Computed example of a mutant assay.
Amino acid sequence: MDAKDTPAHHTGEVTLRNRIVQAATAITSTNGWSSVTMGLLAETIGVSRQTIYNEIGSKHQLAEEVVFTELQHFLALVDGAFQSHPDDLVAALRTACRDVLVRSAESPLIHAIVSTSHGARHELLPLLTTQSATLIDTAKSVLQNRISPMTRPLAEKELATATDVLVRTILSHVMQPSASPDETADNMAWLARQLLA
């Protein structure tokens, strides 16, 4: 996905696009992504199918919108963690990791994405795995901007590498948890301390 095609999530206004994405998210969370059709979305929102196509484009573009809208919720948790710990990088990262993992564990959408049922594995999952470059780049940019003023002096390449490791590790735990959110957050805090503190 080119930069010009990256879904926009900078407005709090409930636009038609927002309503379409919210409806698609709700249907996916309940019945799986394969249940999402332009016709069902049109019926749910009260507009024509052509209006859905005109606003969103293809179903693949809708999938990107759904995933990137969910990403914004996670990035808001990261921002909140750093605002809560403005002078403690490791504590901020630990809180961010824990909050992200708690939300992912409770998210019906994430559960639907990683589930092998409803055909979700074949359509939404790649956006978090094999086709996740844009998602990872977005998360890395946000995290790196937060980390940079708080860490010891690092070359730009070193900071980018450390951020890449943190983002990919957290994403792997979102997709396949191996411990409780608290335990994983403690492990991530240790890793951040080695890399950055």
Rank of each mutant, 00 (worst) to 15 (best):
I27D: 02
G12Q: 12
D79A: 03
A76T: 14
T134Q: 12
L77S: 08
G39M: 01
A8W: 02
L89A: 00
P7Q: 04
T6H: 13
S84M: 11
V14L: 11
L89D: 00
G80H: 06
D88Y: 00
H60Y: 07
K59P: 02
K59I: 04
D99Y: 12
N31V: 08
E123C: 09
A24S: 09
A63L: 03
F68R: 13
L89Y: 00
E64Y: 15
D87Y: 07
T44Y: 01
D99L: 11
H122T: 14
N31Q: 15
R94E: 03
L127T: 00
V90Y: 01
T37I: 02
H118L: 06
S58F: 08
F68T: 13
T15E: 09
V21D: 08
L75G: 05
T30M: 09
R17L: 15
V100E: 05
Y53M: 03
A112K: 04
S132R: 10
T130K: 12
A133W: 15
S35W: 08
L93G: 04
G46E: 03
V114H: 06
V36A: 01
Q72N: 14
I113C: 10
F68I: 13
Q61W: 10
G57F: 11
T51H: 08
H118G: 05
E106H: 06
L16Q: 12
N54S: 14
A81T: 02
H60K: 14
P86H: 03
V47W: 09
H60G: 09
T69A: 11
N18I: 11
L41H: 02
H60M: 04
E13R: 15
S132G: 15
N54Y: 09
P108G: 04
L124A: 08
R19Y: 11
T134E: 12
L101W: 00
A112T: 06
G32Q: 02
P86T: 07
L128S: 10
N54E: 10
V114L: 05
C97Q: 04
N54P: 07
S29V: 07
V100D: 05
L40N: 03
H111I: 15
L128R: 09
T44F: 03
V36F: 02
Q83P: 03
A91S: 08
A120E: 10
Q83N: 12
T15F: 14
L101A: 03
S132D: 14
E106W: 07
A112F: 04
H73A: 15
A23P: 08
A42T: 04
F74R: 12
V66D: 00
S107L: 05
V21W: 04
S58D: 12
